[in-house]
């Protein structure tokens, strides 16, 4: 297998991806020069948008890639194309998704511009100064216009065929925050934000939230009060507040249970006793069969029972 790898007949295409080898310099802790493979093609999502034409899709993005890295790659090696923005598959590692709440206070990085600004209030501060990405992840690179995207793809192909050497992160240098311990330390610092700042953020959020709530209650109240065009009144939630009502319901439930208990006991009639006995006998036999099965299994598993 290693023979196959080393003989390395340059692979240019995988499916419709251009295989772009990127060299990464050796480091003291791992003194080996390595090659990383980027898979590049024009972006082709199932539902194209107006921007799709000027986008390039990259698979197998290095975990430490940043927008700066990608920009530098396109600028230095892929025809000097200018990149407008980069959207990584997982904006943040391990964060999964957020839950759509009523007004979608979901944070979207590089999201569509038409998203209403006022809903972005009350965000909590960032805790990382540099994100990393899942291994084997993807990114969509949006170039300034369609021709530049095409140039970039053409250049990528050419780079592969000519065997042009591409170095990852060349010229990025100090433009991005460092990795390693410094990054963790920065994270530690960011994690404990200033209390005043935090207070403001929470206040702004709560303000917006109560405004929404108020609006919603108004809406519901209106629905409750006014019949629609067919003359029906919508039944809606509201009125009394949730938790208090729930506690009451629980109490009611307990009460009912208690009353149930005080009714006819289950050993009142003769047939009840008889049936109970029968059940017990059945249970016993079932238990025995169960045990037999267990012992049988044990024998299969451990072989013979012998004192150690």
């Amino acid at each position: 297998m290693s023979l196959l790898l080393d003989s390395r007949p340059q692979i240019i295409l995988v499916l419709d991806f251009t295989v772009l080898p990127v060299r990464r310099p050796a480091q003291p802790s791992f003194p080996r020069e390595t090659t990383h493979y980027l898979y590049v093609r024009a972006n082709a999502p199932r539902v194209p948008t107006e921007n799709t034409a000027r986008e390039v899709f990259i698979k197998n993005v290095p975990i430490d890639a940043t927008e700066t890295h990608i920009k530098a790659l396109f600028a230095d090696y892929l025809g000097g194309v200018r990149v407008e923005s980069v959207e990584f598959e997982d904006a943040k590692v391990g964060k999964g998704t957020t839950v759509p709440t009523l007004q979608g206070k979901k944070r979207k990085r590089g999201a569509d511009d038409d998203e209403a600004k006022p809903e972005e209030v009350g965000q909590l501060p960032e805790v990382w100064d540099r994100e990393v990405h899942r291994s084997g992840g993807t990114a969509v690179v949006r170039c300034v216009d369609r021709p530049s995207a095409e140039i970039a793809l053409r250049e990528a192909k050419r780079a592969v065929t000519t065997g042009k050497e591409i170095v990852w992160g060349a010229g990025v240098g100090a433009k991005v925050p460092p990795l390693g311990k410094a990054r963790h330390f920065a994270h530690h610092k960011l994690r404990y934000p200033d209390h005043a700042e935090l207070q403001t953020s929470v206040d702004r959020y709560m303000e917006a939230f109560s405004a929404q709530e108020a609006e919603r209650t108004n809406l519901l109240a209106r629905q409750r009060a006014e019949p629609d065009e067919d003359g029906f009144v919508t039944v809606t939630r509201g009125g009394r507040v949730g938790p208090a009502r729930e506690a009451e319901a629980k109490m009611q439930h307990e009460e009912l249970k208690k009353r149930d208990k005080n009714r006819v006991k289950d050993d009142f009639y003769r047939f009840q006793v008889r049936e109970k006995k029968k059940d017990e006998a059945k249970e016993l036999v079932r238990g025995f069969e169960e045990d037999q099965r267990k012992v049988e299994e044990m024998r299969k598993r451990r072989g013979r029972v012998r004192p150690e």
């Binding site: 791992f30 990383h36 975990i63 990393v132 460092p178 390693g180």
Partner: peptide, 9 residues
Amino acid sequence: LAEIARLGG
């Protein structure tokens, strides 16, 4: 492995 080395610094 090289990525791990880079990430860890």
